[in-house]
Computed example of a mutant assay.
Amino acid sequence: MTERYTAVLDRIVDGETAVLLLEDDGTVVDERVLDVDRLPEDGRHEGAVFDLELADDGVESDDDGLEAEDDDLETMSYRPSLERDRREEAQDRFDRLSERLSDE
């Protein structure tokens, strides 16, 4: 069975390992760790947003203590417009909070 998620690139460890946070309806529900080389080249930066389709749920540990995923990744596509929208929404929230604090 295939599961679909929105994933955000949380961080890249040692330039080789990507840590993705999987979201379902805006809530982080899981984490996936994979080689940076498996990411689309234009999405290899913190905060990049992807659509993911996952199959099997196999997990194994690597030497760094991170969990390396088996080949459960079926498809991954970079979503630059969704990334931009999310960044703009976060900036708007920050701006609104800053305005309220400065009025006190």
Rank of each mutant, 00 (worst) to 15 (best):
V19D: 04
V59N: 06
D24E: 15
G65M: 00
L97D: 15
R32V: 14
D14G: 00
E89F: 07
V8T: 13
S98V: 08
R84F: 12
R11M: 08
D71H: 03
E31A: 01
S77F: 04
E53W: 04
L21A: 11
L82Q: 12
D85I: 03
P40V: 00
D95T: 13
R38C: 06
R4L: 09
L52I: 02
V59M: 08
F50A: 04
Y78I: 01
I12S: 01
H45F: 04
G47M: 04
L66H: 13
D57V: 12
V28S: 05
E104V: 15
D63L: 11
R44T: 00
E3S: 11
E31G: 00
D37C: 10
L101S: 07
R96F: 14
R38H: 10
E46K: 13
D92R: 15
E41T: 07
D62G: 02
L73I: 10
D103M: 05
E104Y: 13
L34K: 09
V19C: 07
R93K: 13
L54Q: 05
E16C: 04
L73R: 04
D14C: 01
I12V: 15
D57E: 14
E88S: 09
L66N: 14
F94G: 09
E31C: 04
D85V: 05
H45M: 00
L20G: 05
Y5L: 09
S61T: 10
R11T: 15
L34P: 10
D62A: 03
E60D: 08
S81W: 12
L20C: 07
T2D: 15
E69K: 03
A68G: 07
E69R: 05
A7E: 09
M76E: 06
V49A: 07
D71L: 07
A7S: 09
D63Y: 10
L9N: 09
E3I: 02
Q91F: 11
R32M: 14
D56M: 04
D37N: 13
P40E: 06
L73E: 08
L20H: 08
A48V: 01
S102A: 11
M1N: 06
D51L: 03
